[in-house]
């Protein structure tokens, strides 16, 4: 008898990813699909994709999806979740989406403790629009709008949104991971699963920040891109559990 050991997750459509070679989105999409399968929630999950490369996430994830304007994903998700608390609602957002144009929505959703799971893909640039400086771009990093590199005096410091959200009263679980190696990918999947569970247990706001490569805009090979994350990006954005109060939360009445 042949045992199947690997297959396409049910929550992943049979489409070929349009993402560039080496881009983290494909891996992350697959991880999200696997987690949805394993939790058995495909039939009650609604996803909110952002503007950006991952706007087409609905071509791959086989769950109900509702698009949001740039930056407003958690606001749209809040509307969905508040009307249908029985659904599992996640947003999938890039760094520009969540940490620049959507900062206000994100901070306040976390503060209200919205029962949402946010998947925050940090690649340090605006991928779809051509690689401009993002809030998370490192100091010195060259982009199409910082031709000589990001300068703190002119462009400000790299934003650490996850740390900002950690101080919000309603956030329960925030972890930063990466998809640069098999080990990190497995850790990312575990974090995603936990983040969904936090929502399903009605504990509060959960977010996984995933450091991901953009080889095209970084003008590096796939392998060098992963190396850059591990050598440089992690120094600014260390991989760690940033906040985890799941053990101390008793559930829905928390903070009431």
């Amino acid at each position: 008898m042949i045992k199947q050991v690997f297959k396409r997750p049910d929550a992943l459509k049979d489409n070929i990813f349009h993402y560039c070679p080496g881009c983290g989105h494909s891996v992350i999409h697959r991880l999200v699909a696997e987690v949805i399968d394993e939790l058995g929630i495909r039939g009650k999950t609604v996803g909110v994709p952002p503007a950006g490369c991952a706007v087409l996430a609905y071509n791959y994830l086989d769950v109900d999806m509702g698009e949001a304007p740039h930056g407003r994903a958690v606001a749209v998700a809040t509307g969905i979740k508040r009307c249908r608390p029985d659904l599992v609602v996640f947003t999938y957002q890039g760094d520009g989406d969540i940490a620049a144009i959507g900062t206000a929505e994100t901070v306040h959703a976390a503060n209200r403790g919205e029962r949402l799971t946010v998947i925050f893909v940090n690649n340090g640039c605006y991928g779809m629009t051509g690689g401009q400086m993002a809030p998370t771009t490192l100091l010195g990093q060259t982009t199409t709008t910082t031709p000589g590199g990001r300068i703190q005096l002119r462009d400000g410091f790299p934003v650490d949104l996850s740390q900002m959200l950690a101080v919000a009263g309603g956030s329960v679980y925030i972890e930063r991971t990466a998809v640069t190696s098999p080990k990190n990918i497995i850790k990312t999947k575990k974090a995603l699963k936990k983040a969904f569970k936090v929502q399903m247990d009605d504990l509060g706001f959960s977010l996984v920040e995933i450091l991901s490569a953009c080889p095209t805009n970084w003008k590096l090979s796939s392998v060098d891109s992963c190396k850059r994350i591990e050598d440089e990006v992690i120094k600014q954005y260390p991989l760690m559990v940033i906040k985890d109060t799941t053990g101390t939360h008793s559930g829905a009445d928390e903070g009431a």
């Binding site: 909110v48 509702g66 949001a68 606001a75 749209v76 809040t78 979740k81 009307c83 659904l87 206000a104």
Partner: peptide, 26 residues
């Protein structure tokens, strides 16, 4: 019924958008 005092007009209209996606009159 759900009432939310949003953090901005932008957030408010987008919450309405999400609510409407579920079929609720918003």
């Amino acid at each position: 019924a759900t009432f939310i005092q949003a953090e901005s007009e932008l957030a408010a209209i987008n919450m309405v958008m999400g609510a409407s996606m579920t079929g609720v009159r918003a």
